[in-house]
Design a protein around this nucleic acid. Structure first.
Ligand SMILES: [Zn+2]
Ligand SMILES: [Zn+2]
Ligand SMILES: [Zn+2]
Ligand SMILES: [Zn+2]
Lengths: 143, 143
DNA sequence: GCTCAGTTGACAATCATTCTCAATCGATTG
DNA sequence: CAATCGATTGAGAATGATTGTCAACTGAGC
């Protein structure tokens, strides 16, 4: 979704805290891998709890933050503003999401990416990022 | 919400609450008209309070909800998930927003709209809606 | 003026998300 | 294996936006 993130990470690179692969982090990552659609932090935490994986809610949030920052998962917001996460492919893409069942399709639009850059240039905006999501009703959820 | 709805839509009944133009609603609308960029409900409420307009925070939220539902104002969410509002033109458009100063440009992309419909059809999704926002750094905010 | 549904506002209640910080973990060295 | 020490965790408190509650208020129509 958001592309072309700020490339200039202002100074202070000396502090690069090692990210340890802990049991909890693995649990969250595996949970994400087991879903095909976007889930909220609360849902993921609930799912883990059900399976007997005891992971604190705060840890789930922290891990999702990490994964999201590193680009391993995509994060977007529901109409209500709640953050939801999904394990996605590495290439830049957008989403077509069923608002009934959540079924998600990754879509690409080279033309849209081009359009984005053109618009930005035309108005003199630099360091552009964009969000683009499609919501609809999938075939199996149609009346 | 949808309760005891008459099966036969004889005229209009349950869903036509008269919207009275009150002092408070006018105040919120005027505040929105005076801004050129997106503002949060809290900011708008603060702005009104400063000017001496005594409007309750809940009323600001309710009015923004009304205006947003009626399409008179656009609502989108910040990266942090906070809802922000802006008085926009009536035609369908998207936004190019400076992440520093909030300067907003309305942009149109017929090609993008076409692409949206094509993608939706291709995957059998109906009743499509889409969100598309561009964030960047405007010329005057550039280093 | 009188009525009554729409409206308001002070305040409580939700709810997602973040913060705090003592206890625990785990890679590493000896 | 044991000691070390910063990274990590989790229970609970705290935050902050948004919504719900409900008695008091407003105003258009009679
Ligand atoms: Zn994705
Ligand atoms: Zn569906
Ligand atoms: Zn707009
Ligand atoms: Zn700017």
């Amino acid at each position: 979704m958001t592309s072309t993130d700020a490339p200039h990470a202002h100074g202070r690179e000396a502090t690069t805290p090692p990210v340890r692969p802990t049991k909890q982090r693995r649990a969250v990552a595996e949970a994400l891998a087991s879903f095909g659609d976007f889930r909220s932090a609360q849902e993921i935490h609930g799912s883990l709890t059900e399976r007997g994986e005891k992971v604190g809610l705060a840890t789930v949030y922290r891990t999702l933050q990490l994964l999201s920052d590193s680009g391993e998962v995509d994060m977007l917001r529901t109409e209500e503003g709640e953050a939801i996460y999904r394990r996605c492919s590495a290439t830049h893409h957008h989403h077509l999401v069923c608002r009934q069942c959540g079924a998600t399709v990754e879509v690409e639009g080279p033309a849209v990416e081009r359009w984005t850059r053109a618009i930005a240039a035309e108005h003199g905006y630099a360091d552009i990022a964009h969000t683009l999501e499609l919501f609809g009703t999938c075939r199996s959820c149609a009346v």
